Computed example of a mutant assay.
Amino acid sequence: MSLFPTEMESERLRYERVHPEEFDAYELYEYVQAGAPHTDELTEYMTWDPHAHPKESFDWVEQAGEKFDDGEAANYLVRPTEGERAGELAGTAGLFADWDRRRAIFGTWFRKPFWGRGYSGERAARMLELAFDRLDLELVAVSHVPENENSQRAIEKYVDRFGGRKEGRLRNTVVIDDEPRDVIQYSISREEWERNRD
């Protein structure tokens, strides 16, 4: 039995683990390759670039599978379960466990056709449940670069919903396009989540 669930569901979304045993990396490559529709907008504020070759997608899937098996992190493919795009790869949801500090760090991205549908908040609610109920962690942290207004709005909405708070600006925390960048970090504690969970 795995520490992390291999699949999960929420109201409108299905989560499938990223693992080479179950996922064809060519499907990922189709959407994140250089020149794919909206890839430049997707990766503008990310710490990774559009994939230049399928091997990059295969390597990422392989690494995600190893981290899943080792209990370090869980990355999930996110697919809508309803509507005209049901079953399509909408994005990914990641939970990176920092066991010594008893916290999880969230990471996510959605393809542009799936922006503005409330999926980020729905995904966050499901991942908070995973972090606190199953993994027995005490804190969840999430961040965005200051210029990423879409992520800022989505994060602030669910952090407020679950009683969390803005921790502040952390300088030179990530590297994007070979340049160190600041991030704005937020956190939600187990106690805050338990007081505000649906």
Rank of each mutant, 00 (worst) to 15 (best):
W60T: 03
G107L: 03
E9M: 10
R12F: 05
F58S: 06
A86Y: 08
A97E: 06
E44N: 07
A86W: 09
W48R: 12
D40Y: 06
P37F: 07
G168E: 06
M1Q: 11
R103T: 06
T47L: 10
R12T: 13
S151P: 04
Y158V: 00
E129Y: 04
F106Y: 11
G163Q: 05
P146R: 09
S10E: 04
E22R: 15
G91H: 02
I176Y: 04
V140L: 07
V78S: 00
L137M: 15
I155R: 00
L137S: 04
W60E: 07
R103F: 02
K112T: 14
V159E: 01
R153M: 05
S120G: 09
A34G: 06
D160S: 15
N196A: 12
E82W: 05
Q33K: 15
W99A: 13
E88I: 03
T173L: 13
P20F: 09
T92E: 10
D160M: 05
G71L: 08
A86T: 10
H144F: 09
P50V: 03
E179H: 13
N75H: 14
P113E: 05
D178R: 13
E11N: 13
E84F: 08
P54I: 04
A97P: 00
K55L: 14
M127I: 13
R195G: 05
E147P: 02
E192I: 01
V140K: 00
L28N: 01
H38N: 13
R123N: 12
G116V: 11
L13F: 07
D182P: 07
H38K: 11
L42M: 14
G83R: 10
F23T: 01
D24I: 04
A141I: 14
N148D: 11
F58V: 11
F106T: 01
A124L: 02
G83W: 07
P37D: 09
R85F: 05
L13P: 00
I184C: 04
L89D: 00
G163N: 03
P20D: 08
R123V: 15
A34I: 04
I184G: 00
P5Y: 07
V159H: 01
R117N: 10
Y76K: 02
P54E: 04
N148Q: 09
G121K: 07
K67Q: 14
G83T: 06
N196L: 03
E192W: 06
R153Q: 10
I176V: 15
A93T: 03
D70Q: 15
E41C: 01
H144S: 04
E72P: 02
E194S: 11
L77K: 03
N148F: 07
I176M: 07
V142I: 15
R195V: 08
W109M: 08
G121A: 09
Q185I: 09
V175E: 14
E149V: 13
T47E: 12
Y15F: 15
E138P: 00
N196F: 03
H144P: 02
L128S: 02
L139M: 12
D70T: 12
E72F: 05
E129Q: 13
E84D: 15
L42Q: 03
A64D: 01
I105R: 12
I155Y: 02
G116Y: 10
R123L: 12
